[in-house]
Design a binder for these strands. Structure first.
Lengths: 225, 225
DNA sequence: ATTTTAATATGATATATGTCATGTTTTGCT
DNA sequence: AGCAAAACATGACATATATCATATTAAAAT
């Protein structure tokens, strides 16, 4: 099992603000976990009581709606933390985390890290910054959901995935999602997501090979009406 | 001008975690402001560089969409803080704040309070808690926007206003909104909001006298299909 | 008090999206 | 490799919501 103080992943999240001493201590109590594609890291309503540091892979954070659909609220990739909220409340999780591909994560129990939040102002400031950023992103999602068409939202989702999570050497999006996942990000019926993607294909905005999607006209997607 | 150390409003927000010394210092540099109904506290893109403590009144936080509509993302009432995000980033505001009725606010400059965020762990923990709460609420809004009908969202908005902001002695909702505001909360056309409210009236779920709305059947609204 | 302006209301119609049905392709399994 | 189960695709139709037009009422201005 790797040591936190030597782990480069922490450079991408708030844990970089911890001192070497703090890292050594955390390293001793952290647990590593492998989650296979499709498996659930934690469920809605579960008490997670700690943070997960994503060493590899991607997962979706979703919330079950009353109509039975599983709305995807956020996607988390390598380098990011999950569960910061659990550090400051005793409430159970409002979201479910599901692996979109094979993942490697480290779990740091709340009991071990909560003291650092009190002692290390740099650390809590970093967490604060991350939350502020998430909050701004959430505001943007709300506006998009409220004011844009399914077509526009889906186009933006493709652009977002392209810009945030990158592409494979052949230019296909590195994050592979089912049409149902796309529908659950955009907040539409699976059939509608399928139809819109087909239309994008006909319009030459994207091309597909199986589940692989390649953006052929990034600028076109950005200006979809 | 009142003194922060004696102000009871702070009990309702993170400022309660400041020490008396810190409050005395902040009291000296804070400025009080009166904002009339309809006036703008700050605009999208403005550098606010501080937090507003709402002593009285209510305001809406909104974001302009590309289609020209002004999506309301959150409402803030007496007791709450606005602009916590500005404490942790140098970015300009992503939202506009507009008074829904006459307001009294105190402005505390970032330069004065930023040091307390470093020194007083209780204070930064409180801010962290508030942000975590806002984040959870934002997640819920996203799911509602994505998965519920205009009718359901409008019903929930009425219940939310009732439960969170209360009623006047005669039972009418204490927050007065135009139909356009309702439309901009729910993310729909003004005409649609008007139609749905008219239908609620016909169904006996609400009654109206001018702009005053009274909820006649709270439980009915909660289970609108 | 009267005029002007803004807000509310409602009808008619267009359009986007949801739903249900059915067929095809891909994926996973033994 | 062959079969079963998902995932994807597409048509037909239903429905919610947007848009445009036009009254009506309430609020603001002179």
């Amino acid at each position: 099992m790797g040591k936190c103080e030597q782990c480069i992943i922490k450079q991408f999240n708030s844990l970089k603000a911890l001192t070497s001493d703090e890292l050594v201590r955390i390293s001793k109590c952290k647990t590593s976990k492998t989650i296979k594609k499709g498996e659930i890291l934690f469920e809605e309503g579960e008490n997670i009581n700690g943070v997960y540091c994503v060493k590899d892979g991607i997962c979706k954070l979703s919330k079950l709606s009353e109509n039975g659909k599983d709305q995807i609220v956020k996607m988390v990739v390598k380098g990011q933390l999950i569960g910061q909220r659990s550090l400051v409340t005793d409430e159970s999780s409002n979201l479910q985390a599901t692996a979109l591909n094979d993942m490697e994560v480290c779990f740091i129990p709340k009991s071990e890290i909560i003291a650092d939040l009190q002692k290390n102002a740099n650390f809590s400031f970093e967490i604060l910054k991350e939350m502020a950023h998430d909050l701004k992103e959430a505001d943007d999602v709300i506006v998009n959901m409220a004011q844009k068409s399914v077509r526009q939202r889906l186009a933006e989702t493709l652009v977002y995935i392209h810009d945030s999570f990158g592409t494979n050497p052949d230019g296909t999006l590195s994050v592979i999602l089912s049409r149902e996942d796309f529908a659950n990000i955009v907040g539409t019926a699976t059939e509608s997501a399928i139809r819109v993607l087909s239309q994008f294909k006909k319009d030459g905005l994207i091309s597909t090979t199986g589940k692989y999607i390649k953006i052929e006209n990034l600028n076109g997607l950005k200006f979809v009406e």
